[in-house]
Design a protein around this nucleic acid. Structure first.
Lengths: 235, 235
DNA sequence: CTGCTGTATTGATTCAAATCATGGCCCGGG
DNA sequence: CCCGGGCCATGATTTGAATCAATACAGCAG
C-alpha cells in the first residue's frame, strides 16, 4: 500500500461506500495514515477512544484479556473494514485492546470531524449506525457458532467464510498463523490441528498456509449438522 | 404495569434517559403499548424491522435457531432496557427472533419518528449509537465468558450480575426458569443443575427460584480463576 | 554447518459437559 | 382421588476439547 494512493482504497471501504462524496474529502484530509508491524499495539482496553480505525491493508485483531489471564480474540478486521465507530462517536474508553495481527496499514478518522459531519448531514449518523450494526450482527453469528457447533464445524465455517470464489472446489490462503486462527475460533492450536485432520474425509486438504476444498457443498452440509452427529458421520 | 402510568417507566429507561425532554413526548405519543404472555412471539428472524422495542416489565428473549435446529439465546432484556435500535433506524430485517420469556409489557417506538428527531437534533443519533454500543459491549463480554470460563464459572458470574445489593451476602430471585438460564449461559439444564451443586462449597444455596450467596467476594474470586484450577479448588 | 527459536503436528491422558435414563415433586384436570 | 405433564435433580456413560509431552521442521544468526 503506497502512501500516495491510499485514498481510493479508503473510498472503496465498506464504511465510506455509504457516505456521500462531499463528506469523504474532508474526512480523508483529517485522517491519520499509520503503518504497523505484526504484533504492534494499536490501542489498549480502557484507553480513551481516539477515532474510527479503517484497515487499508493487512489484519487487525481486537481482543480482551480475561480476568484469568487468557487472551480472548473478539474480532479480526481486514482491508476495507472499520471498527470503533460507536465508541469514537459516543466518546469514552475502548472496551477491547487492538494489535496488528499481520503487518498492516490503517487510517484513523478523528471523531471530531465525524461529529461535525453528522450535524451537517444526519444521514451520516445512519451510516455509522449501519457499520455498528454490522459488528453487532457478526458477534451474534459468532455467538451462535460457539454455542451450537463443535470446534471442527467452526473450522469448516471459517474456511467457507474465507472462500472468495463460488466454484465448487477452491483454494484458500489462510490469512494469518494457526495460533491466531485457533484463538479466533475459540480453541487451542492443537485442537485446530486435529480439526483439520478430521475435515480430511470431507475433502479438505491443508498445505502450509493454504487450504483446498474439494467439495464446497459437502463441507457446508457438514457445518450445519447436529453436533451429536458431527463425529459419527466420518467417512 | 398499569396502562395509565407507563410513561414514567419509559422516561426512566436507559434509552430515554439520554434524550432531551422535548423529544420524549412526541416519541411516546406515537409509541405502541403491547402486552405479551410468556412464550408469545414478538417478531421473528428475517421479518422487516418495525421499531425500537423498550421493555417496561418482564423479560424479552432474543434468540436464533441454528441451522442444526438448536435454539441459541442471544440476549435477555428487562425493565428499562431496549433493543432493535440500529436495525430499526437503518431499516432491514431482524437478524434474530424475539419472544416473551415471561409475561411482559413493551413499548414499540416507530423508527419514522426517530428519523425525524435525528434530523431535528443530531444528538439523538449519538443516543442511539450509545444504546447500540451497549449491546455490542455486552456481546463482547458474553463472548469472553464463553471462551474463557467454565460453565460453572459462568453461572457464578450470572448470579453476581443479578445481585442488586452490595452486601457481602445476599438473596437473588432467579428471573426466569432454569431451562432459560441454562440456554442464556450456553449449557444444558442438567449441566446448570450440576453447576449449582458445585457452587455449594463456595457458599451458594439454591432454593426454588431463589439463590443465596453467603460470601460475594469469594464467589467473585472463583469466577476469575483459571478454568484448569476451577475444579481442583473445590473446598 | 550448527544451534536456536517460533510454529506446527501427533500421541496419551484428563476432564468438562452433553447425552441418555430415571425418579421426585408440584400442579391442574378429569 | 389418581393421572399426566412440566420442571428439576441425579446417576451412568460417552464424547469433544484441553492439557501435558514429545517431536518435526522452517527460518535465521553466528
Amino acid at each position: 500500500m503506497p502512501h500516495n494512493n491510499y485514498k481510493s482504497t479508503a473510498r472503496a471501504s465498506l464504511f465510506m461506500q455509504s457516505l456521500p462524496d462531499k463528506h469523504v474529502e474532508p474526512l480523508l484530509s483529517h485522517a491519520l495514515f499509520r503503518q504497523y508491524t505484526c504484533g504492534e499495539t494499536l490501542f489498549i482496553q480502557d484507553e480513551e477512544a481516539s477515532g474510527i480505525h479503517l484497515v487499508l491493508e493487512g489484519w487487525a485483531k481486537l481482543y480482551r484479556i480475561a480476568p484469568n489471564g487468557s487472551e480472548v480474540v473478539v474480532s479480526l478486521f481486514t482491508r476495507g473494514e472499520s471498527f470503533g465507530e460507536a465508541i469514537a462517536l459516543r466518546g469514552g474508553h475502548y472496551p477491547v485492546s487492538a494489535e496488528a495481527a499481520t503487518d498492516c496499514t490503517l487510517l484513523i478518522l478523528p471523531a471530531s470531524v465525524l461529529v461535525r459531519m453528522i450535524h451537517d448531514d444526519p444521514n451520516v449518523a445512519v451510516s455509522l449506525l449501519a457499520s455498528t450494526f454490522g459488528h453487532l450482527h457478526s458477534l451474534v453469528v459468532e455467538l451462535e457458532h460457539l454455542k451450537a457447533q463443535t470446534g471442527t464445524q467452526r473450522v469448516a465455517e471459517f474456511l467457507l467464510g474465507l472462500r472468495q470464489c463460488d466454484d465448487d472446489g477452491c483454494r484458500i490462503v489462510l490469512p494469518y498463523n494457526k495460533v491466531l486462527i485457533a484463538g479466533r475460533l475459540g480453541m487451542k492450536p492443537e485442537s485446530l490441528s486435529r480439526a483439520f485432520s478430521r475435515l480430511k474425509p470431507y475433502g479438505v486438504r491443508i498445505e502450509h498456509n493454504c487450504a483446498f476444498i474439494a467439495d464446497v457443498a459437502r463441507l457446508q452440509e457438514y457445518a450445519k449438522i447436529d453436533p451429536a452427529q458431527a463425529w459419527s458421520n466420518s467417512g
